[in-house]
Structures are given as structure tokens and as C-alpha cells.
């Protein structure tokens, strides 16, 4: 991670956050239960719930047993979803009746969140590349009772079609440096070879997503890594080819803006429309979000 010392504001605070345990956050499945009813039920069982200031359907939860071991979780009344992971779907802004593609969907946290925004109407295609990963996706889709979803198996960069979706989410496979609070082995940072290999795949996924969305449609590109090569570098790749325009997005949480440059790479001032989340910003994981529009 040392190579990020120059770009991460408040480096010491960043490291203190990385070493702290991560708060557990749950997202109410509003298709099945009202957030206040869920809160009442879980508080009756001894949990302490505090609503997130920027999303009243989500709660930071504390209790003596894991949040995944309750009847309410089993019934699909909530999904355990880290706070930063809630943001890409907010940026995507899906609406009821739309056609939406979640290109790299497993294990399904963002898929089920999209379905809630769509009020379970329209077409939501949740795709992933491996049957094994899809098992986790299916388990969550079934548990939360999502009816508007079609679960597909395909390499994202080969997903068939052209201009068919109103919105596409590319929550890309990445080196995961942003989730180092949960996975200590990531705290030393990802090997550059891995970063560059993933960057190639991410470019292919984002290019394909921009072909799959309708002209004028929205593509959100997100990762849970800090590596600029997997974030700004990927967005710049599609901007340079005229495949997309970058839209500004103001998240409801403290954040940093995308990098204008890193090392010898120049990403340009336009990249400040993208968003970087660092763990010390609001006691969460790290991540990157860019909102793109396919030109008309």
C-alpha cells in the first residue's frame, strides 16, 4: 500500500481505520418488510441498531450473535452489506420498469439492492461467469424473493446483445485492496502484475457494458480496490476511445475525488468526477465509483 502514501489524504488515519474491526451494516429488504418493523424485531432480540444517516433502510447493527444467524436473515428480511458497497447502486439509480444488467453480479448484494430500487418490476439480468459463484447469487436471490431477476452465466466481456439495457452495473472483479479491513493479507497491497492483469479484464468488461447499454444509457463502473490502474486507468481507456462521457456524481458520504495523475500516468482533470472512498472517511471499506453515459 506504500505506493499510495502520496494520494491518500490523512495517511495515518487511513491505517488506523484499516486496523480497526469493520462495523456490520444490514440493508432492509424493503420488498418484504418495512425498515421500522425490522428494527423493532431485531431490537426485541437484543440487537442494537442505528440507522445510517444517509440511508434509512440500512442499519449499523451490534449484537451478541452474528447478524447472519437470525430468523429474520433466514427469511430474507435483510442483507448484510458493507456501507461502501451500498453506493454503486445509488449511483446507478435504477427505476421501476427499466431494463438493467448487473454484469458481474455474484454474490448478489448489489443485484438484490437494484431489485429493491426497481420495486421488483422490469427486467434485471444478474450475470456472472462461473456456475460456482452463481450458486451464492441464486441463494441470495431466492432468499430475498426477487421475482424480476433473470440469472445468467456468461463471461461478462462476451455477454450477447447490443444497446439493450437502460442501465448497466460493472462491479468489476478487482484486486480488493479496499477490503483490507476484512482480509488482512490484502494490507500489503496487490502485486502490480495482478493489478495490470485485472485492469485488462476490467477494460474489456467496461467496453462491453457500454455496448450493451442503450445510447444515452448509464453505466456505473465500481471496484473495491485502491489501485489507480484498475480505477481511473480503466475509465480513461473508454473516455480516450470516445465510448463514454463521464458524469459527476455526489455521494451522500465523505469521499475523495478521482486522481488526476498517479506516478507517470496522466488521467486528466475530468477524472475528478469520479469518486474514491477510503476506509477512514466514514469507517467503511474502500472503493471507487464512476458514472458514465454512452453517447447518443
Amino acid at each position: 500500500m506504500e505506493r499510495y502514501r502520496e494520494i491518500i489524504p490523512e495517511w495515518e488515519a487511513f491505517w488506523e481505520a484499516i486496523l480497526r474491526p469493520l462495523p456490520t451494516v444490514i440493508r432492509t429488504n424493503t420488498l418484504r418488510i418495512d425498515p421500522s418493523d425490522l428494527r423493532r424485531r431485531l431490537e426485541r432480540k437484543g440487537f442494537d441498531l442505528r440507522p445510517l444517516s444517509w440511508d434509512e433502510t440500512c442499519f449499523e447493527i451490534r449484537g451478541e450473535i452474528p447478524a447472519g444467524n437470525t430468523l429474520e436473515h433466514w427469511l430474507g428480511y435483510y442483507y448484510i452489506q458493507e456501507a461502501t458497497q451500498l453506493l454503486p447502486v445509488k449511483a446507478l439509480g435504477p427505476k421501476p420498469g427499466e431494463r438493467v444488467l448487473d454484469l458481474c453480479a455474484a454474490p448478489g448484494g448489489k443485484t438484490t439492492q437494484i431489485a429493491q430500487y426497481m420495486e421488483d418490476s422490469g427486467l434485471l439480468v444478474a450475470n456472472d461467469y462461473s456456475a460456482k459463484r452463481i450458486q451464492a447469487l441464486l441463494a441470495n436471490v431466492y432468499r430475498l424473493g426477487i421475482k424480476c431477476v433473470v440469472v445468467t452465466e456468461c463471461s461478462g466481456e462476451k455477454f450477447p446483445g447490443e444497446g439493450e439495457f437502460d442501465r448497466v452495473l460493472v462491479d468489476a472483479p478487482c484486486s480488493g485492496e479496499g477490503v483490507a479491513r476484512r482480509f488482512p493479507h490484502l494490507r500489503k497491497g496487490a502485486p502490480l502484475g495482478t493489478v495490470l492483469r485485472l485492469s485488462d479484464l476490467q477494460k474489456k468488461l467496461l467496453v462491453r457494458a457500454l455496448e450493451l447499454v442503450k445510447p444515452g444509457g448509464i453505466v456505473v463502473y465500481s471496484t473495491c480496490t485502491l489501485a489507480p490502474e484498475e480505477n481511473e486507468g480503466v475509465v480513461k481507456y473508454v473516455l480516450d476511445r470516445g465510448l463514454a462521457e463521464l458524469l459527476p456524481w455526489e455521494p451522500p458520504v465523505p469521499h475523495a475525488r478521482g486522481l488526476v495523475r498517479f506516478g507517470e500516468a496522466e488521467y486528466g482533470p475530468e477524472m475528478q468526477k469520479t469518486v474514491r472512498i477510503y476506509p477512514h472517511h466514514f469507517d467503511s471499506e474502500g472503493g471507487f465509483i464512476a458514472v458514465l453515459r454512452r453517447p447518443l
Binding site: N127, A131, L138, V149, V150, V151
Partner: peptide, 9 residues
């Protein structure tokens, strides 16, 4: 033209 695993529930 894509393998479908599930259509809703």
C-alpha cells in the same frame, strides 16, 4: 443466447 439459471423464484 446466454445460459439461464433462474427466472425469478
Amino acid at each position: 443466447k446466454v445460459r439461464v439459471h433462474a427466472v425469478g423464484v
